[in-house]
């Protein structure tokens, strides 16, 4: 399972690598990282068939998570990858907007990695 994590905070990469070190080590999971929406669009264009799940932050400079989501949902062939949005503002309005744009779920910060792991298992 290849997962793309999109966040402008670069340390998110280290964090995910450590949190999922066992899954990565066992080859159960592969992680890719992009630091902006634009970078993610490029990455997906090159690797779209590989990615099964996208985990994207919403608040990013430049292209926001929502824009990325809209882009994915309007340009990708079936079946689209699962997209989970991550935000610091986990209120109902953001949730509704995320869902209406085609997100599979909205997670709020700070991420609960235990819950995330279970979610990943159930989603995939």
């Amino acid at each position: 399972m290849k997962i793309l994590v999109v966040d402008d905070e670069t340390d998110v990469q280290t964090l995910f690598e450590q949190r999922f070190r066992r899954e990565v080590r066992s080859g159960e999971m592969q992680l890719a990282f992009c630091y902006s929406g634009e970078q993610a669009v490029d990455y997906l264009t090159a690797h779209h068939s590989e990615i099964v799940l996208i985990l994207s932050d919403i608040n990013m400079p430049g292209m926001s998570g929502f824009e990325l989501l809209r882009h994915i949902r309007t340009t990708y062939p079936i079946p689209p990858p699962t997209v989970l949005m991550v935000t610091a503002y986990g209120d109902d309005q953001s949730r509704q907007q995320a869902i209406s744009l085609g997100a599979n779920d909205l997670l709020s910060k700070p991420l609960d990695f235990q819950a995330l792991k279970e979610k990943l298992k159930s989603v995939v």
Binding site: G62, M63, S64, E67, Y89, D91, S94, Q97
Partner: peptide, 18 residues
Amino acid sequence: AYHGLRAKDKLYNASLVT
């Protein structure tokens, strides 16, 4: 400034180009 505004208006979202 951006986060200050976001805290008040959750729907607001802007692209920031620096």
